[in-house]
């Protein structure tokens, strides 16, 4: 499905941990070429700061980075993945063109953000994030 928006693709990082989501976002922006509009938001932990997943934080983050070109969502484990999938399947609060990207959390976040900052469309951002699975370390 192609997106019709003109702005950059947004990236949302959903982790059980607010600190992990935030630090991963900082890592991704730190490794991307500067200058463009920063469109990455962390949605980590629950609303009261505990470990877990908040549907409200995910929706707010996706809306904050949505410029009409789609939103790539990366999630870490268990309820983070299940909550995003459920929001996509059962609810209509996420912006149109929001997609859960199948990717490793940290490596995928960097790849997604760098490609989004370079102007890639949602399909290309998703593919770049998924390609991070191919990066073997041993």
């Amino acid at each position: 499905m192609s997106e019709t928006g003109t702005g950059p693709v947004g990236v949302v990082l959903v982790s059980h941990s607010a600190a992990l989501a935030r630090a991963t976002a900082e890592l991704a922006t730190g490794l991307a070429p500067g200058g463009g509009e920063v469109l990455i938001e962390a949605a980590g932990g629950t609303e009261d700061g505990a470990l877990g997943t908040s549907a409200a934080l995910i929706v707010a983050a996706a809306r904050a980075v949505d410029r009409g070109a789609g939103v790539a969502v990366l999630a870490d484990l268990g309820s983070a993945v299940l909550t995003v999938k459920t929001l996509l399947a059962e609810e209509d609060e996420l912006p149109p063109g929001t997609r859960l990207v199948d990717a490793p959390f940290v490596e995928g976040a960097v790849a997604a953000y760098v490609s989004a900052a370079a102007g890639a469309d949602l399909d290309a951002v998703a593919a770049a994030a998924a390609d991070a699975y191919a990066y073997r370390k041993v």
Binding site: G52, T53, S54, G78, S79, T83
Partner: peptide, 23 residues
């Protein structure tokens, strides 16, 4: 009820029970 569970539980049982009730 499903919507409430999806948005308030905070663990995997939220989307799972939420999906059960909404479907």
């Amino acid at each position: 009820c499903g919507r409430q569970l999806i948005s308030t539980v905070g663990g995997a049982s939220g989307p799972l029970y939420g999906t059960l009730l909404r479907r």
